[in-house]
Simulated assay, not measured.
Amino acid sequence: MTGFFAALGFLTRIPAPAFATGDAQGDLARAAPWLPVVGALVGAYVALALTLGAFAGPWIAALAGILTWVIITGALHLDGLADVADGLGAAHGDTQRFLEVARDSHLGSFGAVALVLQIAAKLILLAALAGRAGPHMLHLAPALILIAAWARWLPLALASAMPPLAGGMASRLAAGIRTPIVIVEAMALAALSAWLAPVLLAALPLAAGHALYWRARLGGITGDCHGASIEIMESLLLLALLLR
Rank of each mutant, 00 (worst) to 15 (best):
T73G: 05
G43N: 07
A85T: 06
R97A: 11
V46W: 00
A40S: 07
G26C: 09
I72E: 05
A49C: 13
G65F: 12
A85I: 05
A75D: 04
A75M: 08
A102L: 00
L63P: 00
I66T: 12
I60A: 13
D86W: 09
A32K: 14
T95A: 07
G26E: 06
V70L: 14
G39Q: 10
A54R: 15
L76N: 05
V38C: 02
L76D: 03
D83Q: 06
G43P: 11
A47V: 05
R30S: 11
P17E: 00
Q25F: 03
D23H: 11
V42D: 01
A61V: 12
P33S: 08
V84D: 00
L99W: 02
A75I: 10
D104I: 06
T73F: 02
P17C: 06
L28C: 08
W34H: 13
G43T: 12
R30W: 09
A29S: 07
P58Q: 02
A61M: 09
P17G: 05
L41G: 08
W34R: 09
E100N: 01
G65L: 11
I71K: 15
A75W: 07
Q96E: 12
F19D: 09
G39M: 03
P36S: 03
V46G: 03
L28S: 08
L99R: 02
A102W: 00
A20Q: 12
G87Y: 03
